[in-house]
């Protein structure tokens, strides 16, 4: 057995043992306050959960777990909420774990993820993809692997950051160097174990290599391009100053002319401004 496959096996095992992924304290605080408020509706709580990659993945993990017994894989927060009910949602919120010490990079990654969710939603609607909300979800959780590394491999996480800044390479390249695999693959393994829909698994796994996606290269291409778009417009932070290289196959697949790109940017800009109200609020609560 090669070291690489051994490592991957070890990693899978480790992912299985993950007890909890942390979310941002200000988001948890906001949600905790919401569930104590009798007037709040499930939809309002859902709208906030939908803005957090960890809570969203956990909610989907629950609704897709065999114990809940719903075999059609669910990939959107609103569907998950109506199937699980408000009580389960409240308990999820109250028992969610939070970062012990939140860093600027955690907020940056969160904003980046929100941005990618927004951009991929726009592209999915423009390409008339069915269930565009699912693609937004994929955009939101595409970097969940980074949270896994940050929370579960704190030592390696620091090394990756150091390697990236010393060698002037991207976080992803540093991950590959140190771990033998990147956050995309790690995140993909996790959401696969969590029984999320195949479309989400592949979008997460292949967001840096969309043409390798066996069943849904178009979706992976949308996440891939959204990732680049959001890095380029500078909304949030992916942990390094580099914009990931654009995959040519994916670009061909997306078929976007200059005029459409301009339209997308205008549409995106409007939505990002709206989003900023929320991200500023969260930054304010966190004192960042």
């Amino acid at each position: 057995m090669t070291t690489d496959t051994y490592r991957k096996r070890e990693f899978r095992q480790r992912l299985r043992e993950i007890k909890s992924l942390p979310t941002l304290p200000p988001i948890a605080a906001k949600l905790n306050a919401m569930v104590e408020d009798e007037e709040v509706t499930a939809a309002q709580v859902g709208a906030v959960i939908e803005k957090d990659q960890v809570l969203t993945s956990k909610l989907l993990k629950m609704v897709n777990s065999s114990f809940i017994g719903f075999p059609q894989r669910i990939g959107t927060v609103s569907n998950a909420i109506v199937l699980l009910g408000f009580d389960v949602i409240k308990t999820l919120v109250v028992t969610s774990s939070i970062f012990d010490a939140m860093q600027e990079s955690d907020i940056g990654l969160w904003e980046h993820s929100l941005g990618v969710a927004t951009a991929s939603g726009i592209l999915a609607r423009r390409r008339a993809i069915k269930k565009p909300e699912e693609i937004s979800t994929a955009g939101l959780i595409h970097d969940i692997g980074k949270i896994v590394i940050r929370a579960e491999l704190p030592h390696e996480y620091r090394r990756i950051e150091a390697i990236a800044s010393e060698q002037g390479i991207s976080i992803r390249e540093a991950e590959l160097e140190l771990l033998g695999m990147g956050h995309a693959e790690i995140g993909g393994m996790l959401v696969k174990q969590w029984l999320l829909p195949e479309r989400l698994i592949q979008s997460v796994s292949f967001h840096h290599a969309p043409e390798s996606s066996p069943d849904c290269p178009e979706l992976a291409a949308i996440i891939h391009f959204s990732d680049i778009l959001i890095r380029a417009v500078g909304f949030g932070s992916g942990g390094d100053p580099w914009v990931p290289p654009l995959d040519h196959g994916a670009w061909e697949r997306i078929k976007m002319g200059r005029r459409e790109l301009r339209e997308v940017l205008v549409e995106l800009d409007d939505l990002l401004v709206e989003l900023q109200d929320f991200t500023l609020e969260i930054r304010k609560i966190s004192g960042a």
Binding site: K19, K58, M62, T91, L92, T95, S96
Partner: peptide, 24 residues
């Protein structure tokens, strides 16, 4: 306190013992 429900469901129990007086 974290992820209690998630871990509870993950272990497919027959009976659940809950100790009274857990925080919050």
């Amino acid at each position: 306190e974290s992820d209690v429900l998630d871990r509870l469901l993950g272990s497919s129990p027959d009976v659940v013992l809950v100790r009274k007086g857990i925080p919050r």
